[in-house]
Nucleic acid binder design. Sequence first.
DNA 1: CGTTCAGTTGACTAAGGTCAATTCCCGTGG
DNA 2: CCACGGGAATTGACCTTAGTCAACTGAACG
Lengths: 193, 193
Amino acid sequence: MDKFRKVKNTISAIIPVTDAELALFCESIELKALKKNEFFLTEGQICNFVGFVNHGTLIYYKTLENGTEVTTDFAFDQDWITNNLSRLNNSPSKINIKAIEKTELLVVKQDILMDLYIRIPKIERLGRLLMEQAYLRIVQQNMDLQVLAAKERYGNLLNKYPEIFQRVPLYHIANYLGIAPKSLSRIRKDFFE
Amino acid sequence: MDKFRKVKNTISAIIPVTDAELALFCESIELKALKKNEFFLTEGQICNFVGFVNHGTLIYYKTLENGTEVTTDFAFDQDWITNNLSRLNNSPSKINIKAIEKTELLVVKQDILMDLYIRIPKIERLGRLLMEQAYLRIVQQNMDLQVLAAKERYGNLLNKYPEIFQRVPLYHIANYLGIAPKSLSRIRKDFFE
DNA sequence: CGTTCAGTTGACTAAGGTCAATTCCCGTGG
DNA sequence: CCACGGGAATTGACCTTAGTCAACTGAACG
């Protein structure tokens, strides 16, 4: 099935799998389409699934007591998405994951994934890697916030995801960088002159 | 043995264990003393252990390419310390953990811990919790850096660890908060008037 | 009793926040 | 197809917060 071509590439980049194993894996996958502003995961819900973005864009965010929203992460084509804390703990999620454009996903339910771990032990590596990547990412992000000026963080983001500025509204990006939209405008201005 | 009193309290707060299990656990523990400025873990080393601080103070930090040091975390009495990424992955640590005052620790080696998981299955919960706590902590820290002003972060730290200012030099705290020592002075000044 | 290093201070500069007004873009409905 | 409405982004004026550099204080310790 052509829809699984991408996940096939992605998985075999992480762990070499046979065609039979891959077929087994693909059987367990559901295709899911999200419209703009539809949710993949909402606060309070238990995240009993892992998603893989075929194409689209999503944001992770949290709503604070005072009502402000904090954008904590993004996901684009070929990214894995999940809330590890909620998923591994079976606890209510404290964050939302929302599509901010038309998005197509592949989804594996957690119980099916656990089952796959048993039937294809090396798939377990995938589960561990998802957790580790998420951890590494946030450690890095943390240090950036601690050490770098807003302008440098902007520059890094620009390098890492040049396409982000075509796909994500700037106020989300500003929010993610921990600055006011105004400041981002300013930074962008003297970045291009 | 009296030296294990604290770990006993701490462990039984997390998971109820019998005296026999506790004895088994304590057998696997080594006592370790660190002088001021001695390392618990250094960059490049594989962290194949978990520590529990009986008393003392340690900092987590990383040295960047340009030579600056970033303090990413602290540990005090009754805290667990480890580098999960290095330990679970068997990969070289990217951070240092250093005692900044005379410190006494209990240490469990990773292989012995794995062995304990088998002999006392509920101890496994401990391993998972260590990972989760570390993750939760850093997620929170990240949001604070994104959303809060330096003054508020200072206030939070003051609430959470009132004793920190007696035990950790201010330049480490400033570094941790992501600000210059000068700024911390300033903040402290108009905090107390 | 000096040496050293943490902490504070002053004067200045730069970075970022706030508020309000304006422009730009895009989709929707007449 | 054009006009309108609404949200996104930028701008200006102004203020606050944080960084830099250098000098100074003060306590700790050999």
